[in-house]
Structures are given as structure tokens and as C-alpha cells.
């Protein structure tokens, strides 16, 4: 059976498509957006997540670690565990013994059976609300076989399916999922190719090309536009986005105002957060932006 790697299952998800949904987060992403709020979804393999605030310094993780990657800090006033990620093999033993759940492994290999068991628990809520299942990430199409299997099973159960994608994927995979996907949530970040490369690590050309093809092959696509102040909220980018979408006949968009809640996650992964200086956009700015997009005939929602 095909196995996949997921890093979260979010129930009562109400911002990722219609109704009450369960969102399954598949691990791995080809983009490296500087504002990413799910940094634990970027790499393809399991990752160690350390919640320093939960650590009580008991040292059980130190004893459990087979490679000597974990030690107790002597530099801080309270004893807490520190991890040398160079030595860590993400075996997960420290997470298994940690009494306070200060250590977790993000990304466990799972079977479609297990995922479906979780997803089907909330069937009554989907049926009541016109909701369903959303596959997000990461980039769910980084695991095309696994995703396809899950989509097939969801359709066999009569569930509404949504795929939240960056679009930076081979067209083939997108094309294969299309018949099994009721709704695509398709991220459009920056229209300028150079700036796109600068802020996400990849060119936007495949993304735009794929969207163009998808718009012809599928009739339910909602564009999702994260609004990152100083990065993509300028009139030029917004106008270009609106024009592009309207040109493809994609008449629905969601704007997702930047928020820094995700910033804490970086430290837990031993990573640095690049956008520390950015503030959440003001409500007025978001409304102006919404107006601008609506000028192209788009129906625009704030939030997912």
C-alpha cells in the first residue's frame, strides 16, 4: 500500500473550502516562501519539533537519544534540553519518552487507511455543512501517488474534496488529480517573476502556466492571495494579479492577510524566521486591496 507523510490533520477546518472540513497536511514543498506559516511542512522527511516552553529539564530525552544529539543546557538559568540537529537522526525516541510533549516529530509515514479513518470520523459534519476534506501542505502534489489514492478513496466515500496547491508541480500530476478534485485552492503570490524567485525561491512561470491550463480543464478554482506588506501588496502586483485571473476566467479569490502566528514555529525547528520586521496589514489596507481586485469582476473574500 502506498504510504505518505503528513504533518497534521486539522478538524473543524472552516477556512479551507466550503462548510466544515478536515484538512490533511502533506509534507514537503518545492517553495521556500519567506513568510511561510507552516515551516514544518517544507522538508519532505520527518522533522524534530521542540517546544522549549513545555520542557521541564527532566533529561529523559538525553537518556533516550541513541546518537548523543540531546543534552541539557548549562547556559540558561533553568535546565532545558538542547538538540544538536547535526547529530539528530529524527528517530523520535526523545519524543516518545518526553512526559510533557515538549518534543514531537512532525511528519510520520502513514497509510491511506489511517488517514481515511481519521477523515471519516467527521463525516456527519461534512454532510451537515456541505463540507469535506482539504489536502494542503506543504505542497500536497509533492506526493502525487499518495494524494491520488486519498482523493480516490474520498470520492468513493462521496466526500467533497479540495486541494490547496502552490501550483509549482508537474502539469501531469495536476491533471491527474483534477477529475477527483471538486475544488482547487490555488496560490498566487507574486506576478513579477524575479521578485517571485527572490521571495519564494522559485520562478512563477510554471505556476502561471499550470493555472492557465487548469482553468481550461477545471471549473472550480479559487485563487488564494497571501498579502505580505512590502512584498506583494503594491498596486502594481495586485492589478497584475486581478488582470491575470480575470483573463483566465477565475472569478473567485481569497485574500489571506499576513500574520506572524507562524513565526514561533521556526525556533521549534531550529530555524530562523526571515520576516521578523513585518506587521500584519491594517484592515483598511485589506479592504482597499479587496476593492482593487473586485474592480476586475472578481468575487473576493477575506480569509480562506
Amino acid at each position: 500500500m502506498k504510504q505518505g507523510i503528513i504533518f497534521n490533520i486539522q478538524k473543524y477546518s472552516v477556512h479551507d473550502g466550503p462548510g466544515i472540513r478536515t484538512t490533511v497536511f502533506l509534507k514537503g514543498c518545492p517553495l521556500r516562501c519567506k513568510w511561510c506559516h507552516n515551516p514544518e511542512g517544507l522538508s519532505c522527511g520527518p522533522e524534530l519539533v521542540v517546544f522549549q516552553t513545555r520542557c521541564v529539564g527532566c533529561g529523559m530525552c538525553v537518556r533516550a537519544c541513541p546518537t548523543g544529539a540531546v543534552s541539557l543546557s548549562r547556559n540558561t538559568s533553568v535546565r532545558i534540553s538542547v538538540t544538536d540537529r547535526a547529530k539528530c537522526t529524527v528517530c523520535g525516541r526523545c519524543a516518545g519518552v518526553c512526559p510533557t510533549q515538549a518534543r514531537e516529530v512532525a511528519g510520520t509515514p502513514t497509510t491511506p487507511d489511517w488517514v481515511m479513518e481519521q477523515v471519516l470520523k467527521d463525516r456527519i459534519f461534512y454532510e451537515q455543512s456541505g463540507g469535506g476534506v482539504t489536502f494542503s501542505g506543504g505542497e500536497p502534489l509533492m506526493q502525487p501517488g499518495f494524494l491520488l489514492e486519498l482523493l480516490k478513496r474520498c470520492k468513493a466515500e462521496g466526500l467533497h474534496t479540495a486541494v490547496d496547491t502552490s501550483g509549482y508541480v508537474p502539469w501531469d500530476s495536476l491533471e491527474q488529480t483534477a477529475p477527483l478534485t471538486d475544488l482547487f485552492l490555488y496560490d498566487i503570490k507574486l506576478m513579477d517573476s524575479i521578485r517571485h524567485l527572490e521571495y519564494t525561491g522559485v520562478s512563477n512561470q510554471p505556476i502561471l502556466d499550470n493555472l492557465e491550463r487548469l482553468s481550461r480543464a477545471h471549473n472550480a478554482v479559487i485563487a488564494r492571495i497571501p498579502v505580505i506588506p512590502g512584498v506583494n501588496d503594491d498596486a502594481g502586483n495586485i492589478e497584475a494579479t486581478g488582470q491575470f485571473l480575470a483573463g483566465l476566467g477565475i472569478m473567485k479569490a481569497s485574500i489571506l492577510p499576513y500574520h506572524n502566528i507562524g513565526s514561533d514555529k521556526y525556533a521549534r525547528l531550529g530555524k530562523r524566521y526571515a520576516l521578523k520586521h513585518i506587521e500584519r496589514p491594517s484592515d483598511e489596507a485589506i479592504w482597499r486591496l479587496k476593492d482593487r481586485l473586485e474592480g476586475f469582476g472578481l468575487a473576493v473574500k477575506i480569509g480562506g
Binding site: 516552553t53 489571506l256 492577510p257 500574520h259 502566528i261 480569509g303 480562506g304
Partner: peptide
């Protein structure tokens, strides 16, 4: 759980500064 569209986290795991903002 603290949730904003697309973002969510356990409140108690956030740093004090983020908690204060929320």
C-alpha cells in the same frame, strides 16, 4: 487553539509577546 484563517496554533505554546498580541 488560536486560529486565524489558515494559521493555527496552541495558545499556550506561543511566546508571551504573541500571546499578548492575540
Amino acid at each position: 487553539i488560536v486560529r486565524v484563517a489558515g494559521y493555527s496554533d496552541y495558545f499556550c505554546d506561543l511566546t508571551k509577546a504573541l500571546q499578548d498580541e492575540i
